[in-house]
Design a binder for these strands. Structure first.
Lengths: 115, 115
DNA sequence: TAAGTATATAACTACATACTTATATAAAAC
DNA sequence: GTTTTATATAAGTATGTAGTTATATACTTA
């Protein structure tokens, strides 16, 4: 398969974004499941604005996209990004995030009613 | 082919190192050709200590190895690193560095005699 | 052995960045 | 319409980082 060649400026920018443990984990989770901020909050020991700011950076770089549905904003990987296969080649080496997703689904923050 | 799964801590550390334009370019050059500091100096508009400090970080992370030969220390990619195939998967997307290598060979800093 | 060359280290500085708390915005539920 | 919930933005802070200059170390050559 032909690999996209990425400008060195763009590549280093993406790598810098993924070079943060929190953002890299967010990307690995979003690869498996779209999430809203309140769900990601269950995974990280960190304030809500901190998560929002990380997502902002990922969105500004086009790595994630958002989908506003009612009260929530769902984030997911942006497969339309020109660097998508570059990013996938990186993420394929990152450990499975099922355990973190379990944390989300255990609390299920988008289902407060408990029904 | 089986892809190495890399601990998130180690992966983010490597990605942070590659998230600097200078270091990413150094890695891409070293993929094509071993180099000493004085050769890399021809490529970057930056002081010798700056290059040395970047190489130090790459060496500390095990991404490059050094080979002292007389007056020079030749740096090259460390293929023994446990993350080598992760790094290769990244570097395959980085543009060819032949133009930068031409700059090195034009000046040929390791051949001052001119013979 | 003295001078030149290659590289590393130390100390410093300016800027970037990852958080924090406080507050604003917007939708949903009562 | 007031309260609650989800999210974003603003402002401030502490730390990290990439560069600089000055200097040390080590090898080479005259």
């Amino acid at each position: 398969m032909q690999k996209t060649v990425v400008e060195i400026e763009k590549a280093s920018h993406v790598l810098k974004l993924l070079g943060d443990k929190t953002r890299l984990t967010i990307m690995a989770i979003l690869k498996q499941r779209e999430c809203c901020v309140c769900e990601l909050l269950e995974v990280f020991d960190m304030s809500q604005p901190a998560i929002s700011q990380h997502l902002r950076k990922l969105k500004d770089a086009g790595l994630v996209k958002e989908d506003k549905r009612g009260q929530w904003i769902y984030y997911s990987l942006n497969s339309q990004n020109e660097l998508y296969d570059f990013i996938q080649d990186i993420l394929q080496h990152i450990p499975d995030q099922t355990e973190n997703i379990r944390k989300i689904e255990e609390t299920n923050p988008t289902l407060r009613c408990g029904c």
